[in-house]
Design a protein around this nucleic acid. Sequence first.
DNA 1: TTGAAAGCGCTAACAT
DNA 2: ATGTTAGCGCTTTCAA
Lengths: 326, 326
Amino acid sequence: MKDVATAAGVSLKTVSRVVNGEPGVAPRTEQQVREAIEALGFRRNDSARLLRTGQAATVGLVLEDIGDPFYSGLSRGVESVARAHGSLLLSGSSDADPDTEHQLALALCARRVDGLIIVPTSADHGYLVPEMMAGIPVVFADRPPGGIDADTVLSDNVGGARKGTAHLIAGGHRRIGYIGDDHSIFTARERHQGYREAMSEAELLIADSWVAMGTPTADSVSGALKRMLAGPEPVTALFCGNNRVSVLALHILAAREESLAMVGFDDFELADLLGLTVVAQDPGELGYQACELLFQRMSGDREPSRRIVIPTRMQRRGSGERRPLR
Amino acid sequence: MKDVATAAGVSLKTVSRVVNGEPGVAPRTEQQVREAIEALGFRRNDSARLLRTGQAATVGLVLEDIGDPFYSGLSRGVESVARAHGSLLLSGSSDADPDTEHQLALALCARRVDGLIIVPTSADHGYLVPEMMAGIPVVFADRPPGGIDADTVLSDNVGGARKGTAHLIAGGHRRIGYIGDDHSIFTARERHQGYREAMSEAELLIADSWVAMGTPTADSVSGALKRMLAGPEPVTALFCGNNRVSVLALHILAAREESLAMVGFDDFELADLLGLTVVAQDPGELGYQACELLFQRMSGDREPSRRIVIPTRMQRRGSGERRPLR
DNA sequence: TTGAAAGCGCTAACAT
DNA sequence: ATGTTAGCGCTTTCAA
């Protein structure tokens, strides 16, 4: 910019005025400046500009894995809001490692992003308190923060699982199994609770062998299914706590040539082709709302922290509408 | 940082030394500085630091839609390399709009990212020439640039389609249909060519009604299938040029209760559950290689531009192994 | 071992 | 309408 000023025979500030379209430059001067800009191939350095103005025009996003369709959908929601506000997205995947999350979040803060959205993996977010006090708004998405109070945008996990289970009950089922992810995971606990609420509302008791929670593997799901289907009181329907469980269960049931009434939590690309009834989340909406809330905070909103719950939607595709056989 | 210096009673530079772990600070002094940092809750501003050092420690990525599993996989590959080099990822989705791509790319350049990876949508990338001359390396991924010469990382579209079609031919098929995306799309043209090469290598002629290219919709694919399956010489197998086509075709064939031998280009999450044989691309590898090449350029490699082709892999799952019925 | 001064590229505030 | 000065928060250079 200095070079442009020299070349055009004007001051730095005049070039700045032209570049930013500020008023108060004579047409002739402007013309000269533009020619110098053209001749030198000058481009304004936005990093420098943003340093000076104290903005970053950047939203930070830390999530588990940008390669996972759920999070990439969330990311898309965040991005659309950010771009509508003229901001770009600086993001990183934590790979479900608390340390990585921690480091990424702090790295983003060190770059002075205007705000931060975190899909938490860590159990304790005390490390963010100084940053938040320093004025960086933080919104948590999909799962709540640990140990601190902050804005959070969640899916209606309890309600969704309750609705999905109730759907099976309404279909005539009384013995319904539940396979979920590990109990250490927030969404797994919530969905498990939704299942129990629906059963208890219908005054149905849950046998121990009907519930399995743990990191889902082919073996664990297969074992769980075997247990639920054995004995004198086998389940007639199954609620799956997440995608991974649903897919594994479908695989295993297909191999056993069994057909169980089934509802899964969380939709996926080809669930319709498979005829799988699901309780669908809306990852894009999760990201959208999180970023909207973030921009509200960025523009000075100091209200007490909020918790937004995004509703889920039942998608009936056949598997959840099968009637009990016995 | 100035405040810390004042509080610790030392100079700015000494604080800088402590913060950056530079040698030549007396233990006692260091201790005082650390206390002041703690007391004031000081965090180094990396934007300022990067402005001064002339680095950005940031890779820019412009793609079509971060919400799409293919691109999010690619993004993951890019990110893993970037992070291994201590860089973050600044990204944006063009939504297949050339103007948006253009603006995003220039916005990233204006922020002086160290390098740029583009999944192009635009037909002409002349707009990037000044930026590249100014020293920002650019690598194109998944599709080549238009109108300029630059590094490119592609899937082996021609070879993959050839391999997939040849697989059907080896299975005994002689009348094989091809449904692909619009001819304006690079990958669609390449895959179409691969199909033709395989047919011609086997000395099979292609009837007009066997090939359909255009933006795939339920109607267009349904119409195309109807045409291929009608008449005296119906196809006995189908090659689908991309995911969208594969899924639509599966839907339509399921509805018609027909079972055609079928191979799809590009894998997707549950293709195995559906028993769909595919020619799998590796989006993560695409991103990985693109970013590796980018870092090579960033570290001063000035060799002529390179074109890297990532091989595809046949995934046999049943649909491609059905024998012709007639 | 420590610090003063200059400057990265830009904008804000105030002259002229 | 144009320019001067200061300074965003840091690092680099050179001197003490």
